[in-house]
Nucleic acid binder design. Structure first.
Lengths: 78, 78
DNA sequence: TCGAAATGACAAATATGTTTTACATACCCC
DNA sequence: GGGGTATGTAAAACATATTTGTCATTTCGA
């Protein structure tokens, strides 16, 4: 890999708070820790595919509602 | 985490071959190596979320057509 | 204003995903 | 049979995700 080819955005915080869940609540629901939720909401890194699926299911939203892929804006400015 | 809570299935091989792509072709398209494609097709592990998105895009199929989450079959036999 | 609950940061350790290199097998087709 | 292409295996090194533990800051209700 090496060159970043895009990034994954998520609406976790918005949908989690709408559902009235704390980070800890949500972490328990999806079987992860609070720090993991925090890091992912802050987009420090993207969740694993499995965790992503559990998150969408826990919030009862379609996968693509929760996660979007944003292509690199092009710029061959490397 | 620790306890496995389900697994991610994929239809990569089927859709890749339908598209007339070799593992190497596909790897190039998504910016990964042939071994990565091989391992993921064999479900040795699941792709990262970003790679998963690139795969779906490369094959021009909806995300959920390519990947499905299968819940653990229950068994509170822990 | 006190205290508890929720959130944010950060580092070390572990787990999982990805690359690189190398070799083996199978299939064609010439 | 020999050469090329596609696929499978495997190990080491590296990158990223996740946990565990700990502390700081914010928020909010009693």
């Amino acid at each position: 890999m090496a060159v970043s080819k895009g990034r994954v955005l998520n609406q976790i915080r918005q949908l989690r708070t709408q559902a009235g869940l704390t980070q800890q609540d949500f972490a328990n629901l999806v079987g992860a820790t609070r720090q993991t939720i925090l890091a992912i909401e802050a987009e420090k890194y993207a969740p694993s595919l499995e965790l992503a699926f559990r998150m969408a299911r826990a919030l009862s939203v379609p996968f693509e509602t929760l996660f979007q892929f944003e292509e690199e804006v092009a710029g061959p400015r490397n």
